[in-house]
Design a protein around this nucleic acid. Structure first.
Lengths: 125, 125
DNA sequence: ATAATAAATGCAAGTGACTTGCATTTTCAG
DNA sequence: CTGAAAATGCAAGTCACTTGCATTTATTAT
């Protein structure tokens, strides 16, 4: 179903070769450098697809502002600096147990959670 | 500084008298019923103010979709049904310890976290 | 290879939530 | 009561993202 297109490949390359999480716009600009005719629409459509396929992660930097990173196998969450927005991954999610407990308490079937930590990095403190 | 206006009072009343979290638009419609000339701008400005004052909480229902509830003293997080969007509060945050550990590991000073659980409620399962 | 076909793209226009600028109204401290 | 700061309403603007649609492109079956 999903086909291998130059655009999709270019988007993945950009994400893969950049250490920090990138916004859709940043990815657009970077892909456009190699691929001048690419449309922003294509970026959005591919980011959605790749997120759904869990190839990349969509990360909330703050309200209505998202970035994308490669999905590492480990269950990462991220900590974002409120000042410079530098972002660092954090391994180990202590939350799955809690989720199970909440599920028992509420009767909900919990299928996802989203944890975001905010603070100041060493430089910005 | 902050003055007591009819509009602000009406907004608070609406939030206080409704069990479930409300979106800005819903609040707007409900306030308008009592106060036909109110502007949507006013709703947004007041919701921001009240959130900042921690009188109410801004709750992420999903990407780019927020609701507001009264701020109870306890540290609540919420669980949102992916199907009907019914939302239930969850007491006790097991996360503060983890945050302290992450702070030690990364050198960040963690000032906030945002946890959101998603799943299906009993009815929607 | 080649043609058929389903997916993906690019473009233009649209949406929706929220913001901003500004003139007017309202609250409240003195 | 009065004046200054705050808040409001209106209109226009912004910004991220979406949608419709005609065209192009990657894969599949022949």
């Amino acid at each position: 179903m999903a086909r291998k297109t130059k655009q999709r490949q270019a988007i993945l390359n950009v994400i893969q070769n950049t250490a920090k999480p990138l916004s859709a716009r940043e990815i657009y600009e970077m892909v456009k450098a190699q691929h001048p005719s690419v449309a922003l629409t294509t970026i959005y459509r591919n980011l959605d697809l790749l997120t759904q396929q869990q190839v990349i992660c969509k990360l909330r930097v703050r309200d209505n502002e998202y970035s994308y990173v490669m999905n590492t196998e480990e269950h990462w969450h991220y900590i974002v600096c409120l000042s410079c927005h530098q972002t660092v991954g954090v391994v180990k999610c202590p939350f799955d147990n809690f989720a199970a407990k909440v599920a028992a308490d509420t009767g909900y079937e919990i299928v996802a959670h989203d944890i975001q930590l905010y603070g100041y990095c060493r430089n910005c403190r």
